[in-house]
Structure formats: structure tokens, C-alpha cells
Nucleic acid binder design. Structure first.
Lengths: 155, 155
DNA sequence: CAATTTAGTTTGAATATCAAACTAAATTTC
DNA sequence: GAAATTTAGTTTGATATTCAAACTAAATTG
């Protein structure tokens, strides 16, 4: 049946365009949500860094640079800004004096939780109207995508 | 039942982290795919611009800047690069001499199609193993997300 | 036809990024 | 256990990107 195939093609095309649009849009609305919040001195990129440091507490600078795929120099520059603004702490490692461990300040944790709450809201809306099994299905699609990404990255 | 709820929470958390990771990863693999292709002189951002111009043929500079949410000055700079590299054409408008319409060169169209093919592959993998009704469901989730984005952007 | 508006470019400043050189600390080697 | 090597993080210098505001040229309005 042809109208049926047309439907499927439309879904494909929509999902394709959506995947491209979504991240840009998310970054943009995160930026605008930040502007309305009490944390006005921070960019969406910096929130991303705060999120990563919050998620991976007390990791070294090199480890965080690797996770974020940033050069060490770039991360140093970002850390200087976030430390100055009071979101991130550099914690000298007592066992190995070359190492700096990273953590959030209490202000950083506040930002982390606000950002996390916003993302939870986002996911709730993403999954609005779906039941458990459907959610599981959508999760599987994300797994597919990550597998593809890993595959292509590896080769 | 608690283990059931744990499952759902896990799905939520996974989808949350995934949404954050995916775009960064997509940009990165696009960059690395470009490096392997015949189009080595171009960044993922520039491909994005070529995609947009290809999708919206003969639009004016201002229209494209609006679509991409870039300032006109930024777009001018990008166009200079893409014109120099031979992907994009500036077409002076005969009716209104202030207006420049944008289009792809044949090299630009080649890049457009290569990029499009890669994205189709990506979506295929995203949807691997799903039937038509399931795909429709995933599309609906993307619609939800775009609705949320529009809502938050508007307010 | 002078004043205003519009489309796109130029300019100057701010920011982000990277790779390479560098510094200090830890580990390995002889 | 001192010298050589490796490792962690910072600094440096160059290049990219972006924006807003000033600017130029063309079109429209009053």
C-alpha cells in the first residue's frame, strides 16, 4: 500500500530533521532558562561542564578533559572561569601532588540540581503519554543510536 | 512493584543522559566521516550550513541567518569561507539589488547528498528492529520534544 | 526628491579552542 | 639513589567564531 509507505517515509524524514534540530534547540532554551534563573553569569557550555563534574565527582582534570573530549588546555581555561565564578573547586591531591581533583562548590551543586530538574522535565515531556513498555522501546532506540555512534567512532 | 519502577527510572535516566550525549557524538562522527570523505576542507558546522542552504534553496542571506539563528555578520563570514571553498553561491537578485539569494554549487550539492545519506543511515540505525507502528511512536516522542522546545522558547 | 527603511558587509572586541612548550612532581632505570 | 623519562596540569601563541554596531548601497515612503 503506497499511502502507508508514504507515512513511514514521512516519519523517517521527520525524525531525521528532528535529530538535527533538537540539540541546537535544547542548548538555546537552556541558555534562556539560565538567563531567567539566579545563575546569570554562566553559559550553556559551562553548565554542561558543571553537569559533567557533578556526575563524575573528584575526577582528575585529565579524566574530565577526556570525558568531554576537550584538550587539557581548554579545560584549564574553562576551570579558571568556573572557579572564579564559584561553581567549581580544584582539590589538590594529597597522594600525588601533580594531580588536581575536581568537584562542585555548594553553589555548583545548586546549579547542578536546577539543571538536572530542567532535564528531567524535558524527558518527561519527551515521553508524555507513553506507557512503560513504550518508554522501554524509545530507550532501545537511543541504545541503537549510541551503538551506531560507538561503531562509527571506533573504525 | 518496586523492581519494575526501578526499570522505568533507569530508562528515564538513560534517555536523559543519551539526549545530552547524542548530539555531541553526532557532530563528532560527522567531523570524522568528513575527514575520510573527499570533502576534507570543511567542518561539521559548515556542513550544517550547506545542509540548510540546500534545504532552503535561493533564500536570502537574512532568511538563512534567521533560520540558523545566526547574526547576519556571522553568516556573511561563513558564506565567504564556503564560497571560497566552492560549496555555496551568492546569487544577486535581479529584482532587488540589495538582496543576495543563496544556493549550492554542484560541489555543494554533492556534499549535501553525501551528508544526507549519512543521516539516513543514522536514522535507519536509530530505528533498527522497529516496525511501522513503533516508528510512528518514536516520531511522536520527537514531536513532543519539539512542542516542549517551542513552548519554552515562546514564553 | 528627501527621509526612512531594508539587505548585506565591515569592523572591532570578546571568547573558545587547540597544539606545543613548559613546569613540577612522580616513576623508572641503571 | 641520582639521572632520565613519564605524567599532570598550566601557559602561550595562533586561529576560529561570534556578536553588535557602524556602515554602504538600494528600495520605498511621504
Amino acid at each position: 500500500m503506497n499511502s502507508q509507505n508514504d507515512e513511514i517515509k514521512k516519519d523517517y524524514d521527520f525524525i531525521n530533521e528532528s535529530l538535527i534540530n533538537v540539540y541546537d534547540s535544547i542548548m538555546r532554551i537552556e541558555e534562556s532558562e539560565i538567563r531567567k534563573s539566579r545563575f546569570k553569569d554562566i553559559t550553556a557550555k559551562e553548565v554542561h561542564l558543571v553537569h559533567t563534574i557533578g556526575l563524575h565527582d573528584r575526577k582528575t582534570t585529565s579524566q574530565v578533559a577526556h570525558i568531554l573530549k576537550l584538550s587539557k588546555g581548554t579545560l584549564t581555561a574553562n576551570l579558571n572561569n568556573l572557579e572564579r565564578k564559584g561553581y567549581v573547586m580544584r582539590i589538590p591531591n594529597v597522594e600525588d601532588h601533580r594531580i588536581i581533583n575536581l568537584g562542585l562548590t555548594s553553589k555548583g551543586r545548586l546549579l547542578y540540581r536546577a539543571h538536572d530538574a530542567f532535564h528531567k522535565l524535558l524527558v518527561q515531556r519527551f515521553l508524555k503519554g507513553f506507557g512503560d513498555s513504550e518508554i522501554h522501546l524509545i530507550k532501545q532506540a537511543m541504545v541503537n543510536l549510541e551503538e551506531f555512534i560507538d561503531e562509527v567512532s571506533a573504525k
